Amino acid sequence: MQIDFVVNGDPVGQGRPRFARQGKFVHTYDPPKSRQYKAKIAQSFQQAYIGKPLTKPVKISIKAVFGVPKSYSKSRTEACLKGLEWPTKKPDTDNIEKGVYDALNGLAYEDDKQIVMTNTVKVYGPEARVEITIEELE
């Protein structure tokens, strides 16, 4: 089984956890930007797939497409869109992956320990988005 879906908008990486003291206890929570992006990923996934979480090992492919900065010259923009220049900017690929894995935990698969193979790439494109493919392995 293969599930493909797209999350429109700029890719957002998983932010560092935040801490708040409540009396004698310390409470850990996601930064608001990360929490909102995870909800957006979950919503996009639920529009593409209705069913129970996968139970077998899975492979996840992530293509983070960044919009070309408006400040780039016409020739540099064309080079970016042809794949001659790579987006070496934040967020890092590992932070993009972590946000996607956490957002899909319990929805696409029972637990993210089922992820046995990954492939993540950052590229430039005409519109910012994240393309995600989840494949159930035999």
Rank of each mutant, 00 (worst) to 15 (best):
Q2I: 11
Y101C: 00
D10P: 06
V130T: 15
Y49W: 07
Q46K: 03
R129I: 02
K24Y: 01
A79W: 05
K89A: 14
E136P: 01
I96M: 01
L137G: 14
N8L: 13
E136D: 04
K52P: 02
N105T: 14
L107F: 12
D112N: 11
A39M: 13
K56P: 04
P91H: 04
D102G: 06
Q36C: 08
I3V: 15
Y101W: 01
V116F: 06
W86C: 12
A20S: 12
D4A: 05
R129L: 06
G67M: 04
S61C: 12
G83P: 04
P87A: 14
H27R: 13
S75H: 06
L84K: 15
G83V: 12
Q46W: 06
Y72V: 13
K82D: 14
T93G: 07
Q114V: 05
L54Q: 03
G106E: 05
K38Q: 08
I62K: 11
R21D: 03
D10I: 11
G9R: 09
E131W: 00
P91Y: 03
L54E: 00
I3H: 09
P126M: 11
R35M: 10
D92N: 02
V100D: 08
D94E: 13
A39N: 12
Y101S: 01
K122Q: 11
T77Q: 10
P31Q: 11
K98E: 13
